[in-house]
């Protein structure tokens, strides 16, 4: 490759990006763990607290999660964007989050008072982690029905998230899970980092997740 000019040949030194005003958080986790259900529960709680929010979803092969939120009646459908993951749910939140960044920028431009942008990852595996270029803080959702060995597997998602949510606590007795033992093991592998047990269906634990979000990125007491 020889056809290049000789003026300003190199990348400029990196500088701090001009950050938009809304806080950006990620919600990841395995397929079926309850990410969309958690968001459905969080929206009214956060809205009740006066937080101006929007959501970007990364469905793998459909727009089901985006459509589910748009039709939920919980949020203005225009505040929900869907970004395709090109069969790579990891890539779109980590190695190349630019489509998500651009979708977030568009939502911020459309809704100038936006305070919180929630990025919902497509269902993935335990190695799924968010780039801090995309989000300021992120949640990883697992569920008791996925098995009490999930924390023991020490996946990067479980270990590195800012908040681990263990969902579907109501199912524990039905799937032979010792919930206190599972939570204790999860807390141990995370070195005591934040963890909340939820039942997104009933709403148990949702207020605590909202509290954690507000404290972490919205500077609420």
């Amino acid at each position: 490759m020889t056809s290049v000019t000789t003026t300003s040949p190199a990348m400029p030194p990196a500088r701090s990006p001009a950050r938009a005003s809304a806080a950006r958080i990620g919600i990841g986790g395995p397929v079926g763990s309850g990410k969309t259900a958690l968001i459905e529960r969080l929206i009214p709680v956060l809205t009740e607290r006066g937080i101006d929010l929007a959501v970007v979803t990364n469905d793998l092969v459909t727009k089901e999660d985006a459509e589910r939120l748009r039709r939920s009646g919980l949020i203005d459908p225009a505040r929900v964007s869907a970004v395709e993951a090109g069969a790579c749910p990891h890539t779109v939140i980590r190695e190349d989050p630019t489509l998500n960044i651009a979708a977030g920028d568009e939502l911020e431009a459309a809704f100038p008072g936006l305070e919180l942008l929630i990025f919902e990852s497509g269902g993935d595996n335990l190695a799924s982690t968010f780039s801090l270029d995309l989000v300021d803080w992120w949640i990883f959702v697992i569920d008791v029905a996925g098995g009490d060995d999930i924390p023991r597997k020490r996946g990067p998602g479980v270990l590195r998230c800012d908040l681990l949510v263990v969902n579907k606590t109501d199912l524990a007795p039905h799937v032979g899970i010792d919930l206190p033992a599972m939570l204790a093991e999860a807390s141990a592998v995370r070195g005591g980092k934040a963890m909340i047990a939820t039942n997104a269906r009933s709403g148990d634990g949702i207020a605590a997740v909202a509290d954690a979000i507000c404290r972490a990125v919205l500077f609420a007491p």
């Binding site: 490759m1 290049v4 000789t6 190199a10 993951a85 090109g86 190695e95 989050p97 489509l99």
Partner: peptide
């Protein structure tokens, strides 16, 4: 040399461009 390296960097699929999601 530096110019060629800049070209390689921009061509590299690890450079975040969103292209992976378009067929």
């Amino acid at each position: 040399m530096l110019e060629n390296l800049v070209a390689l960097q921009q061509a590299d699929s690890t450079f975040p461009s969103g292209s992976f999601a378009f067929s």
